[in-house]
Every structure is written in structure tokens, then in C-alpha cells.
Computed example of a mutant assay.
Amino acid sequence: MSRMIFVNLPVADLAKSRAFYEAIGFTNNPQFSDDTAACMVVSESINVMLLTHAKWQTFTNRPIALATSSEVMLALSCDSRDAVDAMNTAASANGGIADINPKQDLGFMYNRNLADPDGHVWEAMWMDMSGASGAV
């Protein structure tokens, strides 16, 4: 059986977050969405669950991290350098922040980091595997 991943993210404003993720290319799966959660599909095996703070707190008693802190950076591959740039542009135009870290261009790999409206960090990246020989 193929494994799937569901990344769960607490969000302050579900409608705003859903609109942000749709703008950067994710699609909503209404089967797993309601007024407390939105399932945003990245691919057949990757989904992002946007959860209101109240819904999040039904899963854990741990505090929600501040928008200015980082706990994880989620790297997502893109088909090209242009797609990396387009994701960053869409992020900044839809309530997120583009280039929260300096962009990185190693020739065979190109990435830019963005934050969603709640400060969750994503790394849009493209890599030419033929040029990655021996890279760490």
C-alpha cells in the first residue's frame, strides 16, 4: 500500500488560509472539509489539513507556536525554477510572506522559502537530479 501524509496546521482564519493555499496551487477536498477544517490536496499522497485553533486543540494540549517562530520547514518540489518563483509570488500576493530566508541557487538546486498567513514555513524547491551527484 502506498503511504500518504497529512500535514496538520493550526490556522487563525480558516477561510483566509484556504484561499491562500488555493492561490499557491493546492485544491480543496470537500469530503474532509467543514467549518473547522479544510483538507488541501497537494498530490495523490500529500494533503494539508488546515485546522481552526479550536479544532487543533481537540488533538493536543500543546500550545500553538507563535507565527514568528519556526518548528518545521516543509519542502515541496516544483517542476521548474519558474514554478518556484510563481509559488513565491502567489504567496506574497495572497496574505503570505515571500523569501523569509534568502533564496538559494546551487545550479542543480533552486529554492525559495515562504510563510503562510499563520507563519508556517514552506520551501518551494526545484532540483535537477542529474546535477546532484555527490551533493549533501
Score class of each variant (00 low, 15 high):
102 P>E: 09
125 M>E: 01
113 N>L: 08
56 W>R: 05
77 S>V: 05
4 M>I: 13
61 N>W: 04
95 G>R: 13
15 A>D: 14
44 E>L: 09
18 R>V: 13
61 N>K: 15
80 S>G: 12
5 I>S: 10
19 A>H: 01
63 P>Q: 09
1 M>F: 05
31 Q>S: 03
33 S>Y: 02
11 V>S: 14
127 M>T: 09
100 I>A: 05
73 M>S: 08
30 P>C: 03
4 M>W: 04
4 M>H: 11
65 A>V: 06
64 I>L: 15
68 T>R: 04
80 S>K: 10
112 R>M: 01
38 A>W: 02
22 E>H: 08
123 E>W: 04
31 Q>G: 01
77 S>P: 07
41 V>I: 09
133 S>D: 07
130 S>T: 15
135 A>D: 02
41 V>G: 01
102 P>Y: 04
118 D>H: 06
104 Q>V: 15
76 L>Q: 12
43 S>E: 06
107 G>C: 08
66 L>N: 15
3 R>D: 09
17 S>N: 06
56 W>K: 00
135 A>G: 01
7 V>H: 09
110 Y>C: 02
35 D>Y: 05
133 S>W: 06
4 M>Q: 14
45 S>D: 14
105 D>G: 11
76 L>R: 03
135 A>C: 00
93 A>H: 02
119 G>R: 11
54 A>W: 00
114 L>D: 02
3 R>Q: 12
72 V>M: 12
123 E>L: 07
111 N>F: 11
40 M>Q: 03
106 L>R: 03
35 D>R: 14
79 D>L: 13
9 L>A: 10
122 W>N: 01
123 E>A: 06
99 D>W: 01
133 S>K: 15
50 L>F: 09
93 A>F: 02
97 I>D: 00
122 W>M: 02
29 N>I: 09
36 T>A: 08
25 G>D: 05
18 R>S: 10
21 Y>V: 01
117 P>G: 11
67 A>D: 10
37 A>N: 12
27 T>D: 04
116 D>E: 09
72 V>Q: 11
26 F>D: 02
127 M>Q: 06
74 L>D: 05
106 L>P: 00
77 S>D: 08
